[in-house]
């Protein structure tokens, strides 16, 4: 019997597999696929303080081995999230990560404090890196902004804070160092890579938002490189994200130095992916003669 559990800042995940925020709604519609109670952790689509409609269509566009999206994070707002979705996440069993995003430092702080006060979250993820917001600002691409948000949030919550980092920077490992110095307990990487597509017929950008974020297997090597180069520079754990389509891809992230892995776009392709990845990792650990998933974290170094 192998031990699949991993630890993120004192929170024990029964296994290292979770959905990337905004790619797997934990609701009754999904229960025909597999039970979300089997996941390593559950997470919401990033919540903002106020309701937001999201971006005008077209919002997605398929690309080679990936897709562009410019969804713009439609959100029901904090109030409804606290009343409806958060209690549902809490009831499922796995640790609850609440993903938040603010439009100002004050808003980041208020959101974190509100989530903390419910007692229903185990970790708070700061979505500092969405490339598709109308404000056009990526917090995690600006050292001072990143540092300021993380510093202010950790002051108002006892919960461990995850900083979700952007690949749209000169060196993501340096941004991870900035986040760690500011007090983050975990980093997650990578969010989508900025991209766009142009319709050669209309000669205009395809996406309603003009630019979007590239996800899927196309960005996996970039994500592996990010995790690998960050692993030795920080002491806090990494959640590896970026184009995981199979359990083999997930093992690659663990070997690069990720403590946990998040599946995003592939959930759209095959809603059983996370279940298959959980099983595949466990089988790999056993077949290779290890006793714990933790034995292979960072082994590629």
């Amino acid at each position: 019997m192998i031990d699949t559990s991993v630890e993120l800042a004192g929170v024990i995940l029964p296994n290292p597999v979770l959905p990337a925020s905004g790619t797997y709604e934990v609701d009754e519609v999904h229960e025909g696929f597999f039970s979300p109670s089997e996941l390593g952790a559950v997470i919401n689509k990033t919540i903002f303080m106020n309701p937001r409609p999201g971006n005008p269509p077209p919002r997605i566009w398929e690309t080679p081995c990936g897709m562009l999206n410019a969804i713009g994070i439609p959100s029901e707002g904090l109030e409804r999230f606290l009343a409806e979705q958060l209690p549902r996440l809490r009831r499922l069993g796995p640790p609850v990560i609440v993903s938040i995003a603010g439009n100002s430092v004050q808003e980041w702080r208020d959101l974190a404090a509100a989530i903390d006060s419910t007692g229903s979250a185990d970790l708070i993820e700061l979505d500092l890196s969405c490339p598709n917001l109308e404000e056009g600002f990526i917090w995690a691409a600006d050292e001072a902004a990143l540092s300021e948000v993380v510093t202010s949030v950790v002051k108002v919550t006892r919960l461990p804070v995850i900083s979700k980092l952007s690949p749209n920077v000169r060196d993501i490992s340096e941004m991870a160092v900035v986040a760690e110095r500011a007090g983050t307990a975990v980093v997650s990487m990578i969010n989508s890579h900025q991209g766009m597509a142009i319709d050669i017929g209309t000669r205009k950008p395809i996406l309603g938002n003009i630019t979007g974020g590239l996800t899927g297997p196309a960005i996996r090597p970039l994500a592996i490189h990010s995790v690998f180069t960050t692993f030795k520079k920080i002491t806090v754990p990494i959640i590896g994200i970026g184009g995981i389509a199979t359990w083999q891809d997930a093992v690659e992230f663990l070997l690069a130095g990720a403590t946990a892995v998040a599946v995003g776009t592939q959930n759209f392709v095959n809603p059983m992916t996370m279940k298959e990845v959980m099983q595949g990792i466990a089988d790999y650990i056993e077949d290779a003669g290890f006793s714990s998933v933790r034995d292979i974290i960072g082994l590629a170094h």
Binding site: T23, G54, P57, R59, M67, I71, T265, N267, F268, P271
Partner: peptide, 17 residues
């Protein structure tokens, strides 16, 4: 119709005003 990735409400791609 809408450009959709998942069909189950996850991707939010197939928005119509």
């Amino acid at each position: 119709e809408g450009l959709m990735a998942c069909g189950v409400g996850d991707c939010h791609g197939c928005a119509v005003p």
